[in-house]
Design a protein around this nucleic acid. Structure first.
Lengths: 138, 138
DNA sequence: CTGCTTGCAAATGATTTGCAGGAAA
DNA sequence: TTTCCTGCAAATCATTTGCAAGCAG
C-alpha cells in the first residue's frame, strides 16, 4: 500500500494526515514482524529524528483504536504491534520470545465450521486466534 | 489441593516451603479467574499484611519458572496468572479486558488430530491455545 | 550452620499525561 | 479559523533489584 492510499484511510477515519502518522506507517511496513514500540521509535528516529517517542506511542494507540493495526501480546512484558489484519495465527517460542505469523485457511475453515454449530453459553464469538507454542527449528 | 500437597510440590521442585509461598498459593486458589499481581497482593495483604509486594512478585516468578502456574496476557498491559495448567482456551472480551476459561475436549481432539497430520515448516509444536474474542452476553 | 528467602526502599523502564505551540482542514 | 496533533518533560505505575536480616532444611 502506498502512503497515498494510507492517507486515504486516515481521512476516511476522520484522522488528520500528518508526517508523524505516515512515518509510523512506514516503519510498520518496514518492520512487519511484530515490532515493539521501541523498534518503531528507533526506526523512525533514523529518518525523522525530531519525531518524539510520545508521539509514536500516541500514534500507535490511535491506530489500534481505529483498527488500523492490532496489539499483540506475548508472555514477556512489552507491547507489540501487528499491521496485518487478516485472520492469522501465531507461532510462539517461549524461549526467546519470538513470534511468527501462521496462515492456514484450511484450519480457519475447520474452526469456523466448528463454531458455527457450537454455541458457547453466555459468549458471542467475533473472532479467534490460535497460538501455537513450540520451538523454531533451524 | 491442600496446602500439604502443595508443600510437597514445592519440596519436589527443590523450593523451600515458606508462609509467603503458601499464602500466594492460597490467594491463587481463591482468585482463580486470572488474577493480576495486584489482585493477589491485595488478597494476601488482608490476611498477611506483612508480606511485601516484592515478595509476591518474586514468588509468582518462581512459580512460573517452575511451571506451577502460567502467565497469561491480554492486550491490556498488566500481567495475569493462571493456576490451571490443563489444556484450556480463553474467552476474551476486548471491551472490558475480561477473560474466562473455556474447556472443550472435542475441539482439542480436532486440533490435535489436525496438527498430527499437518507439519509446519521450521516449527515444532508443543502446545496450542485458542483465544476466542467476542462479547459476554448477560 | 548455610544458602535460599524475605522485606524494604530505591531503581527501572515502558507507557501516559498535561500543556503550550503548531499544523491540517 | 478551529480543531486536532505534536513535542517536551514530568509523572505514573507495574515490575525489578540490591542488600541486610531472617528462616527453612
Amino acid at each position: 500500500m502506498h502512503s497515498k492510499e494510507f492517507s486515504k484511510i486516515l481521512t476516511e477515519k476522520g484522522l488528520k494526515v500528518t508526517i508523524q502518522r505516515l512515518a509510523v506507517y512506514e516503519a510498520l511496513c518496514r518492520e512487519r514482524v511484530h515490532p515493539t514500540s521501541e523498534n518503531i521509535i528507533s526506526i523512525i528516529s533514523e529518518k525523522y529524528p525530531s519525531i518524539s517517542a510520545g508521539t509514536v506511542y500516541k500514534t500507535l494507540d490511535t491506530f489500534v483504536e481505529h483498527k488500523i493495526i492490532k496489539r499483540v501480546k506475548t508472555d514477556s512484558d512489552v507491547m507489540r504491534y501487528d499491521s496485518v489484519l487478516d485472520r492469522h495465527h501465531h507461532l510462539y517460542c517461549e524461549e526467546n520470545d519470538r513470534i511468527s505469523d501462521y496462515y492456514d485457511e484450511e484450519l480457519d475453515k475447520i474452526l469456523l465450521e466448528y463454531f458455527n454449530n457450537k454455541k458457547i453459553p453466555e459468549f458471542k464469538i467475533e473472532d479467534f486466534k490460535l497460538q501455537l507454542v513450540g520451538k523454531f527449528t533451524p
